[in-house]
């Protein structure tokens, strides 16, 4: 454990709290992508299957349980008490309604879940169920924020807490990259190209957002995407 990873994890933890605080405070989930939240829930459920068979540390175990339960709570709230404020029209992917005619989650399944799973079958750290699901979770996490970013793109502006949430998740990913560099130089045999490549892709997806978020903060102006 180093300071970069710890800070990254803390930002990740805070991101859930920000989102939940915001939803409860405003009694609304407007501007939050249910698709991204469901994808994150799939990510955590697949990756943390090792809760059942391998123990790393109490810290890891508690964080894993928190990530799964917080995301499950957010999804549950969006489907129940805050359902009426869910902005479904702006949470549609380009392919929704057209993927092979009529398969249910359309865009998300066709453009995000299936490609990630196929990639996991090709590039993994071992051809067995857990390894494939683990690789799948890494690839899926890399792109899980896309529906949220598309939603922001459609509405052009976001509510302060939603923006803070995206910022926290993006910053957590950025800190993980620094953590990897640190580990590479301080640990022997630390080599994980699969995670590094996905992590860099994931962080790049936030670049645009960070740029406009920074402009808004610098100018004390409202966050507004161009176009």
């Amino acid at each position: 454990m180093n300071i970069f990873r710890l800070s990254g994890d803390m930002l990740h933890l805070i991101s859930f709290l920000v989102l939940m605080y915001r939803m409860r405070g405003q009694r609304s989930c407007r501007g939050v992508s249910l698709k991204s939240q469901i994808l994150f829930l799939i990510v955590f459920c697949c990756r943390y299957l090792d809760l059942f068979f391998s123990f790393v540390s109490l810290y890891n175990t508690m964080m894993k349980i928190f990530f799964i339960s917080a995301t499950a709570t957010i999804v549950y709230w969006m489907l129940t008490k805050y359902r009426s404020s869910y902005d479904m029209d702006n949470d549609k992917l380009h392919g929704d309604g057209s993927f092979m005619g009529h398969l249910p989650p359309h865009g998300v399944l066709g453009y995000i879940i299936v490609p990630c799973f196929l990639l996991a079958l090709i590039w993994n750290e071992g051809f067995e169920a857990f390894e494939i699901l683990w690789a799948f979770s890494i690839y899926l996490e890399a792109v899980a924020i896309l529906p949220q970013l598309f939603m922001l793109q459609k509405t052009k502006e976001g509510e302060a807490f939603t923006l803070l949430y995206i910022f926290c998740v993006g910053a957590y990913r950025g800190l993980y990259i620094i953590n990897w560099i640190y580990r590479y130089f301080t640990e022997k045999h630390y080599w994980q190209p699969l995670v590094w490549v996905s992590g860099v892709v994931q962080t790049l997806l936030y670049a645009d957002f960070f740029y406009y978020y920074w402009i808004a903060l610098r100018d004390g102006a409202k966050f507004q995407l161009p176009g």
Partner: peptide, 10 residues
């Protein structure tokens, strides 16, 4: 090993 792989991260 597990401790030295990406699997000891979150």
């Amino acid at each position: 090993s597990y401790q030295n792989s990406g699997k000891d991260e979150l």
